[in-house]
């Protein structure tokens, strides 16, 4: 079954992009910076540990939506906790406990605090996972066997074929000028 792009030769699978491998973190940051300067946008870099400069070089400066999601989670948790306590003590089953008011809010603070933290923590974890598009057991970059090193001691930069500036020959030429350790064509 032969299908897909025929830029240079007939490919068995469509091309996902071109990937370069580096040994030093400094090199991948430089490469990402130059690729961004050259106008490439649909690309991502892969590293075994977080590199702050790398996401900056890729043009991602903003701290993103996650802190707002976590704040929203916390507010939801606070309202849910207080709401639950109010509903249970005032509406559903009012009970006179030592002559205290039914809505004895000072006593309601500790459980509401706990639900605030609980919901905020869930928002942080699931917000991070969902915004990252995880879980994603399959991704084209895993088709390059050497990519297994990305979780150990190698650094990768992948420019996707979807990028409007992408041209197999020209992009390859551009990437070769960055002096990578290796260059791979990534199958879809």
């Amino acid at each position: 079954m032969v299908r897909g792009r025929t830029v240079v030769a007939m490919r068995k699978h469509p091309l996902f992009g071109l990937m370069v491998e580096f040994v030093e973190p400094t090199d991948v940051v430089r490469a990402a910076h130059e690729a961004y300067q050259a106008g490439y946008r649909k690309m991502d870099a892969y590293s075994p540990f977080p590199i702050e400069e790398l996401s900056e070089a890729l043009g991602r400066h903003k701290s993103g939506r996650l802190p707002f999601i976590v704040f929203g989670g916390g507010v939801t948790g606070l309202l849910a906790g207080l709401g639950l306590e109010y509903y249970a003590s005032v509406i559903s089953y009012p009970m006179n406990i030592g002559g205290r008011p039914l809505a004895s809010w000072p006593a309601f603070i500790p459980p509401a605090f706990e639900t605030t933290v609980l919901f905020a923590a869930f928002a942080a974890v699931f917000g991070m996972i969902i915004l990252n598009g995880l879980p994603m057991p399959y991704h084209p970059v895993f088709n390059v066997p050497q990519f297994a090193q990305a979780s150990r001691d190698r650094f990768f930069l992948c420019i996707e074929a979807k990028d409007p500036k992408f041209d197999l020959a020209a992009t390859r030429h551009f990437l070769e000028a960055l002096e990578p350790k290796a260059i791979y064509e990534v199958d879809e």
Partner: peptide
Amino acid sequence: LGWRGAASHWHRYETACLL
């Protein structure tokens, strides 16, 4: 979860850990 160490993922990951 199919973690692949993408730069954008690390960025959110660190934010989540800090929070």
